[in-house]
Design a protein around this nucleic acid. Structure first.
Lengths: 184, 184
DNA sequence: CTATCGTGGTTCAGTCACTGAACTATAAAT
DNA sequence: ATTTATAGTTCAGTGACTGAACCACGATAG
């Protein structure tokens, strides 16, 4: 049902993509998923999104195969990006780059680099050291020159998000999934 | 007015970008702008968007410097992408590519190529012939293998949009700006 | 000069979605 | 048995979108 009166244009792939990821909050949810957030409560507190809307968005993203819902039966649910979801990275990266260019005079708020060789990424996502298009799990993200530690949000999840990390690396929650699974 | 309760995250450029281009319809308006649409009425009919919403979106985009409003004083107004707006192309391209990949089994609905040498563009926007990142005005767009001529929309604007053209090349309207010989 | 048309909007009632706060359900942990 | 952590649901109030009609203005036709 994605949208009541759906975008009519059947011949533009952009319209179809918008029905999946174009609703309010959706891209911010996905950004946080790239940053390693997997838990319902963490999405809710990080984004300040109404929980009912979060439920609705997560359901749509799971139905469309962008996120996978992983329930361990013990009250712990994780939402992880699927391969299809990971292929949304160029969109997220392009939007961050545009926002940095025009709304962050002090420089990029987050700096991206190739975790293997340390080379910075250009705006097309290429490592300037090795020249390759860096796979998402090898991308290192850290606060950049434009990062503003205004209100240092003291919760542990925010603290983790503001350190240098690799994309998709899960934030460790207070109560983790049962008995340490090897799927990281 | 961008958003009533704005996205709170001040430290993600994505949130700032979403405030400018994240509202419903906005990216479709910009897609049409890349395709050469410049007139209020053409946006309205091509997208099927309520005119009040279109007014609101155009005003925001002009205020943010993404579009320029050009009024010739004779009842003809044109909205054109600025340089800042043209830099949104990687976002539009990435979303079309993702939509094609996952929702167009018959192949891309629109094919992109380098107008100078005819080389097709890869998913990062590089010409596979000359290897360069092709500037937007040199990008040729035409119906691709997944294009579906289902309801051949008979209006002249749609007809132009479905032929091979360069991006940003304006669609010629029935009544053009200031003194023109091409009367129908 | 008046009437009509093309164009770029505005207005408005009805509907739908989002917001924010409170509440519920379930499974540990104490 | 009670508390805590987590993942949701519920609901009234508000705001945004929808669709259709209407308006203002300049150009064109009679």
């Amino acid at each position: 049902m994605t949208l009541p009166s759906t975008y009519a244009d059947r011949n533009c792939s952009l319209a179809r993509a918008m029905e999946v990821i174009g609703e309010r909050w959706t891209l911010l949810i996905l950004r946080d998923a790239f940053f390693g957030i997997r838990r319902f409560g963490d999405f809710a507190t990080q984004l300040g999104i109404p929980r009912a809307v979060l439920t609705s968005r997560l359901k749509l993203l799971v139905r469309e195969g962008v996120l996978a819902r992983d329930d361990d039966g013990a009250g712990i649910v994780e939402y992880r990006l699927t391969d299809k979801g990971i292929e949304l990275w160029p969109i997220v990266r392009a939007m961050m780059a545009w926002g940095d260019t025009f709304y962050s005079p002090a420089g990029a708020k987050r700096a991206l680099s190739h975790d293997r060789d340390g080379g910075p990424l250009d705006h097309e996502g290429r490592c300037q050291e090795c020249g390759s298009v860096v796979p998402v799990p090898e991308i290192r993200i850290e606060p950049g020159p434009g990062f503003d530690p205004e209100n240092p949000n003291p919760d542990p999840v925010s603290a983790q998000l503001n350190t240098a990390r690799r994309l998709l690396e899960p934030v460790t929650a207070s109560r983790t999934r049962q008995a340490d699974d090897s799927k990281v």
